[in-house]
Amino acid sequence: MDYFIELLFAGLTRGSIYALIALGYTMVYGIIGLINFAHGEIYMIGAFTSFIVATVLSIYGFPLLAIVIIAAVAAAVWSSAYGFTVEKLAYRPLRKAPRLAPLISAIGMSIFLQNYVLLAQTSDFLPFPELIPEFAFMEPVAHIVGSSDMVILVTTAIVMIALTCLIKFTKIGKAMRATAQDKTMAVLVGVNVDRVISATFIIGSALAAIGGLLIASHIGQINFYIGFLAGIKAFTAAVLGGIGSIPGAVLGSLVLGLTESFATGYISSDYEDVFAFSLLVLILIFKPSGLLGKTETKKV
């Protein structure tokens, strides 16, 4: 039973991280219908920024709490800046281009950012400083659920609630929903669509950065290539839940995380990614628009 619970929590942790990244995909897709391939790289840059900031601060002897807060803020700020810039340079000029053009541009951006980090930093795996301490009150259950798992779960839950509030109750959230529904109509009622799209990229990137910080300190090492697989997995999760739907992304991520965790725990760890993609293929065959996705009516 302990093993089961251990796997359950591992799956939930993994799922929450996927969810933080998947939200960026799904929000962008919901608004401009683009698979933002560079999103995984934004997450990687978030992890790298927090790594650099945290290491520099710990060398200069800052207290742990200050390091965590400053690293998280720096990661979010710079990732958002990258997300904003990428959108402005690589996607905005292509709004009216054929559907495949922005996708290729996104793939190009992803390759570019990967190699940029590779050249500017290093290709080695870097040890990530331990930002989440072992809490004393977690001692009795520490063999099942680690402190970092708990922190990840709680942080993700808080971020999700904040995001839901942002989208439901604020003005920019309303504008985002309007833009996702109908871009032309949103313009007509006075929504600045460009600004809304930028805001979407910024929010999505900040979420990915927080995910990057959490997972990096959980796993303990990073390199320039981590964005690729995480990005694909998160995108899989977003599609699984029905791309464009925010609760769908969270649900899809949790399903994906749990599937991977149980499959690796009970069957074999070699085929971890195979399980993830097989699940995706199966769900899409039986429910082609994802778990919570809306079926679109097409007209000629």
Binding site: L94, A101, S105, G108, M109, S110, I111, N115
Partner: peptide, 10 residues
């Protein structure tokens, strides 16, 4: 390579 893809598309 990545940069050329982006510039080309834009």
């Amino acid at each position: 390579f990545g940069a050329i893809l982006v510039v080309m598309m834009v």
